[in-house]
């Protein structure tokens, strides 16, 4: 099958790639753009390891088609740190030991970032429910929740 040409913006950079129409956005990010920070845990929208921010909304990139990226703005984990400076969430995840194996971490960070963009002062409950689409098998979530709440606090204080 002939491939389709897609032009898109990823982490602020203009990107182009060729893809098969059956490929997902996650496939394109990983296999065509070498952005392997987004992970495939299930491919069916159940684990959140592939979470990216698509036009301002957090989505499972395994459920979007690669061709849907045409003309769109996409943020991935690779764009979260700025000029070598970690995002507060990234810093807090390290301080709180909120990752063990780290496979869920990129997706959880993207989902948390999107939460804090919409809700600067989430409650514990709100964080738990917001992240309910992001599976973590290692941590039992406790340290993740603490890291997000602590990051929210620091972001409020620094802005």
């Amino acid at each position: 099958m002939k491939k389709v040409h897609v032009s898109t913006t990823i982490n602020g950079d203009n990107k182009e790639f060729l893809c098969d129409t059956r490929e997902t956005l996650l496939d394109a990010l990983r296999d065509h753009l070498a952005l392997t920070g987004s992970k495939e845990g299930c491919g069916t929208g159940d684990c959140g390891a592939c979470s990216v921010i698509f036009e301002g909304e957090v989505i499972c990139s395994c459920l979007a088609l690669a061709v849907e990226a045409e003309g769109k703005n996409i943020d991935t984990i690779e764009g979260m740190a700025n000029d070598g400076k970690l995002h507060i969430l990234q810093k807090k995840f390290l301080e709180h030991a909120a990752l063990q194996c780290g496979i869920c971490t990129p997706g959880i960070l993207m989902a948390s970032k999107s939460l804090l963009q919409q809700n600067k002062e989430p409650t514990k409950e709100e964080v738990r429910f917001w992240l309910a689409g992001n599976l973590c098998r290692c941590t039992g979530y406790d340290k993740i929740i603490n890291a997000v709440l602590d990051a929210a606090k620091e972001m409020r204080e620094t802005v």
Binding site: T36, G37, E78, L86, L94, E95, A97, G102, I103, T105
Partner: peptide
């Protein structure tokens, strides 16, 4: 802080796939 932390929070750590 774990020594492999930065790779793991920035998406640079290389897993199996």
């Amino acid at each position: 802080i774990r020594p492999d932390g930065i790779e793991k929070v920035t998406g640079q750590a290389r897993f199996g796939a």
